[in-house]
Amino acid sequence: MAVPDSEAQYVTFGLDDECFAVPVEVVREILDHQDAFRIPHGPDYLLGLRDVRGQGVPVIDLRLRLGMSRTTKTPHTRILVIDVKIADKALTLGLVADRVFEVTSFKHQSVESAPDIGVRWPSEYIAGVVRRETGFVVIIDLAKLFSPADAVSLVSADAGRTVAGSAVI
C-alpha cells in the first residue's frame, strides 16, 4: 500500500483538448515526430516502424487507439518512446501525442479511480484521474491499453526486421 504523502512522477501530454499522463519510469525518450515506415495489414492505430537508435519501434497513433480522431501532425507533435510489459512481453512502442507538457508529480492520495461514465474512451484504459485547477489529467494504464492479441501483432510488426539508418530492410 502506498504511503499517503508519497508521490509518483508522470509525463503529461495532450491529445485533442484532453490531458493524459504515463509514469515517467516507462518513458525512454521523447522525439520529434517523423513519419513511420508503413507496415501493410497492421491495425489502423499502428502507423508503422520508426528507427530509434538502431531499433525498429512500432509507432502507435494513440488518438486512434483511444477511439478519437486520427492525429494531425503539427510542429508540436511528439513521439513518446516507452517500454511497457504487455501480456508477459516487454515491448518498446512509440506513442504519438499532439504535444508533451511536462514531467510532474502527483501524490498517491490525489489519484482518483477511473469514472465509469462521462468519458469518450473506454474506462478500462484509465489507471486514475487527477484533478487540477485547469481540469483533469487522465493516467493511462498502458498494460490494459493493448490486448494480448495486440501485443502479438506489435511484436511481429518489428520481429525479424533490421534497421539501418532510416531504412527498414
Rank of each mutant, 00 (worst) to 15 (best):
T71I: 13
E133P: 11
S166K: 14
T72Y: 07
A157R: 06
V81D: 01
E102G: 07
P43Q: 13
G135Y: 11
Q34P: 03
D150F: 06
A21H: 03
R63A: 03
E102C: 12
L80P: 01
L91T: 09
H76V: 11
L49G: 13
I117G: 08
P122E: 08
I39L: 15
V26H: 06
K85G: 00
G94S: 03
I169W: 04
D44F: 13
G42W: 05
R53K: 14
S123I: 06
A8C: 06
V100R: 03
E25W: 07
P75Q: 11
G94N: 04
E102T: 15
I82P: 00
G67R: 10
D35A: 15
V168W: 02
L46Y: 05
D5L: 15
D5F: 15
A2V: 14
Q9C: 08
D141F: 13
R78W: 05
L91A: 07
D98Q: 09
L93C: 12
I86L: 10
T72C: 04
I79P: 00
D98S: 11
V52G: 07
D51I: 10
Q109C: 11
R50T: 04
A159M: 09
L31M: 14
T71E: 00
R63L: 06
R38M: 08
S147N: 12
Y10I: 05
A164Q: 08
E7D: 04
V129E: 01
D44E: 11
P43I: 01
P40L: 13
E7P: 05
V11C: 00
R63H: 10
V11G: 02
G42T: 06
T74R: 15
I30M: 06
V81C: 01
I139Y: 01
E7H: 12
A21P: 05
E29A: 09
T134M: 10
I140D: 00
T71L: 12
D44T: 15
L46R: 02
T12H: 04
L62K: 05
D35N: 15
T12R: 02
C19F: 08
A127I: 04
W121V: 06
D141G: 12
D51V: 03
L62D: 03
L91Q: 02
A151L: 07
P23M: 02
G128H: 07
G135W: 07
I126C: 14
S147R: 12
G165E: 05
P43W: 02
R50E: 01
V27E: 01
A90Q: 14
S105Q: 10
A90K: 06
D150G: 03
S113Y: 10
G135M: 11
K144V: 07
Q55Y: 10
D44R: 15
V100D: 03
S156V: 10
L46F: 09
